[in-house]
């Protein structure tokens, strides 16, 4: 009985101390920067209370029984207590887990709207960005036609809706920036939705979470959250640049789309070196290559706008990889 009481005491201590302890350090999902990530984290911490309590209960009983009922001086094959079972205990440990699971499910459903639903837009409205996962880069399209690759810029404090997909000819990817919420798959032939509303400025890193091929590990993504005015300025600057051969977009394209396989200086990485290749100096050849692919190279630029092709060519002209 005393053992039972002390075990119960231990369990209740864990109940009180667990969430606080877990929230410190790396025993919980990363520090959230958006309400949906916050909701997931508090669900995680709530579930942790029960998980740790059950863990301590079971492992505690296991260790206690191992110590208490070890053989000591008894004969090796002497019988233990010949108990075949007990119905009341069976009922107890069938119903208790049901109660615990009910509580967990109830808490999840209470937190769910805050995780799933996009919050009401404030004075500055909301922003919608189309996210496309492709081997092995992320492409973002803003409502005004601005295109960005791998690094997304977003305003702080504004709900950002993401529609996430992948081209029909591509494979499945998964969009995941841990601080800004859970992941959602980018699936060819399907459009999924998710959102975030960053509560502070900064850069939040993530990467593709669904095995998508040889370059999977290099398919990184980041979201740079800017003050609203700064974001608006960036968006306008990019829009204007895009009409005249946007070198910034060209650079992002080179780094995000080309360099993962061919190296930042075209020195070769996952695949062959391209530095100094005549193709890179011929805008027409570049366009044919990226739109159609060649041999093992997928059509990484299928579906790109003319502006995006121009941007890449403008960058290649201004700073040819590996020097001219």
């Amino acid at each position: 009985m005393r053992a039972l009481l002390s075990l119960a005491g231990l369990v209740s201590l864990v109940l009180v101390a667990a969430p606080a302890a877990l929230a410190q350090g790396s025993f919980a999902p990363v520090e959230p920067a958006s309400p949906n990530a916050e909701g997931i984290r508090s669900s995680y911490l709530f579930v942790s209370i029960f998980i740790l309590a059950i863990f301590v209960l079971v492992e505690g009983a296991l260790i206690a029984f191992i110590l208490k009922y070890r053989r000591r001086r008894r004969a090796r094959f002497a019988d233990g207590a010949q108990i075949h079972g007990q119905t009341r205990l069976e009922i107890l440990w069938t119903t208790l887990p049901v109660v615990v699971l009910f509580l967990i499910a109830a808490f999840v459903f209470i937190e769910l709207p805050g995780i799933k639903n996009v919050p009401e837009a404030g004075a500055s409205g909301e922003l919608e960005i189309r996210v496309t996962g492709r081997q092995y880069y992320w492409q973002y399209e803003y409502p005004n036609g601005v295109i960005a690759i791998d690094r997304m810029r977003a305003p702080v404090g504004v709900p950002v809706r993401l529609t996430v997909s992948a081209p029909d000819s591509d494979v499945i990817h998964s969009w995941w920036i841990p601080a800004l919420g859970g992941k959602i798959d980018a699936i060819p032939g399907r459009v999924n939705e998710t959102w975030f509303e960053a509560d502070r400025t900064g850069v939040f890193e993530g990467q593709c979470a669904e095995l998508c091929g040889v370059g999977h590990a290099f398919m990184t993504a980041s979201v740079e959250v800017l003050p609203e005015a700064e974001f608006a300025a960036w968006l306008e600057e990019r829009r204007q640049a895009q009409t005249t051969g946007d070198v910034a977009l060209g650079e992002e394209t080179w780094e995000g789309v080309c360099a993962k396989c061919h190296g930042l200086a075209g020195q070769g990485a996952l695949y062959r070196a391209v530095a100094g290749s005549a193709v890179l100096r011929d805008p027409q050849a570049v366009e044919t290559l990226v739109r159609n692919g060649r041999r093992t190279m997928p059509a990484v630029g299928a579906g790109w706008t003319a502006e995006q092709i121009d941007a890449l060519n403008a960058y290649l002209k201004e700073s040819p990889p590996g020097g001219s």
Binding site: Y44, V47, I51, S174, G182, K183, E210
Partner: peptide, 17 residues
């Protein structure tokens, strides 16, 4: 026990894969 986190689908959105 860690399976319970993964069964709770919003938590799984964070932990999956």
């Amino acid at each position: 026990l860690t399976g319970i986190y993964l069964a709770a689908f919003p938590i799984d959105w964070q932990l999956h894969d």
